[in-house]
């Protein structure tokens, strides 16, 4: 099987739509017959990252490449960048505004969760320019 490329634009204006891209990727992987555990890990990691994009960076785009044995996801935004990546990786550390907490996010679990569910995670960030988040999840075909 050759790799499949998917591209999504994530709107930063509508919080209620955050997660649409992740849901769509999940559906696609299911149709391709990947195992449930791997699909869930991709979906959760991508969903947290999509939420981050909407909360912090007014949206961006997502590129997904599906290979037989792994999935690569790039989430790219032109947001404010992450001043201290190490701090952002700590469970419970959050810079999200209160209105986001009222929506059930902003508990400082986003990046730690993403790291937990992926096999590889790389952050390229520049203050005032934006953030690129590269995720890799290894999968086995069911």
């Amino acid at each position: 099987m050759s790799n499949i490329h998917l591209h999504y634009e994530v709107s930063g204006e509508d919080f209620t739509r955050a997660g649409e891209a992740s849901g769509s990727v999940k559906k696609r992987l299911k149709a391709l017959g990947y195992n449930t555990d791997a699909i869930r890990r991709v979906a959760i990691a991508m969903y947290e990252a999509e939420i981050n994009m909407v909360i912090h960076a007014e949206g961006g785009f997502v590129d997904v490449d599906i290979f037989p044995d792994h999935v690569e996801v790039l989430l790219s935004d032109k947001g404010p960048g992450i001043p201290d990546v190490e701090k952002a990786m700590q469970e419970g550390f959050s810079t999200a505004p209160d209105n986001v907490r009222n929506l059930g996010f902003g508990a400082g679990m986003g990046l730690p969760n993403i790291k937990k569910y992926t096999d590889d995670m790389r952050i390229e960030t520049e203050i005032g320019k934006g953030t690129d988040l590269y995720l890799t999840v290894k999968v086995k075909e069911a």
Binding site: R40, I51, F105
Partner: peptide
């Protein structure tokens, strides 16, 4: 089980099967 009522509750459940 949740006391939160917004679409992200459903999306979270979706990601978690």
């Amino acid at each position: 089980l949740t006391g939160l009522v917004n679409p992200q509750v459903v999306r979270t459940a979706e990601m978690m099967d």
